[in-house]
Amino acid sequence: MSEYISIKNLSVRFGSVEALKNVDLEIPRNQITTVFGPANSGKTVLMRAINRMIELSPTLQRSGDITINGESIFRPEVDVAVLRRRVSMVFALPTPLPMSIYENVIYGLRLMGEKNREKLDAQVEYGLEAAALWNEVRNRLHDPALSLSGGQQQRLCLARSLALDPDILLLDAPTAALDPISTAQIEETMIELKSRYTIILVPHNFHQGARVADRAAFFLGGECIEVGTVSQIFTAPRDSRTEDYVSGRFG
């Protein structure tokens, strides 16, 4: 197993709230790693740490490190904008921008200064195709993104990330607001995408994690309790707290 993302002794506080406590976690390349646990267990904060979105909070205090390919993402010479394109995030609630479908997908590319129409068109098709949305919107790319249904909006957000050709996808409960059919479509997409991307998934519920992921990490109260393959974590957890959670005794 080759570690790709390494989280080393990471602690995060917002003011007096301790969100992550001494987290150590290794994430291998081209696999889906699911980070699961009850509410307020630090899953989202962990995701937001990997693309440095946590830094939007003025009360942040952080110690420890995250490396990608052996290099710390907190080095002063790292351009946060570049990092966030390599490590692209899809949020729990669809967040289309108030512009057309097409403009949404190329938003990140535009920011990078890409002006070549053919390149943009190609990336729009690639992103929408990969997110399983192309067939539904190919004839109305210039309609407002907010006219799409919730499930379509979420796949649009996924397409928007994929169009940037990132290395890592952070999916923070991407199906939380979706119906079962859209959920199934997104799950299928995730499995198809893992050959090209390294995916970290906060699942909508831990069953989803069990369905799509290769590895699983159980979080509780800001601590990483246990990491392992999906089958080990969900069938033979070593820690009693993991066992309580996956067997439905709390959460």
Binding site: L83, R84, F91, P98, Y107, G108, L111, R160
Partner: peptide, 21 residues
């Protein structure tokens, strides 16, 4: 706020987010 976060997560700077979104 989701507009701001969506934009920032795609690698926009704060100024690009304000101006563009």
């Amino acid at each position: 706020n989701s507009y701001r976060e969506g934009s920032l997560a795609l690698g926009a700077t704060q100024w690009q987010t304000i101006w563009g979104v």
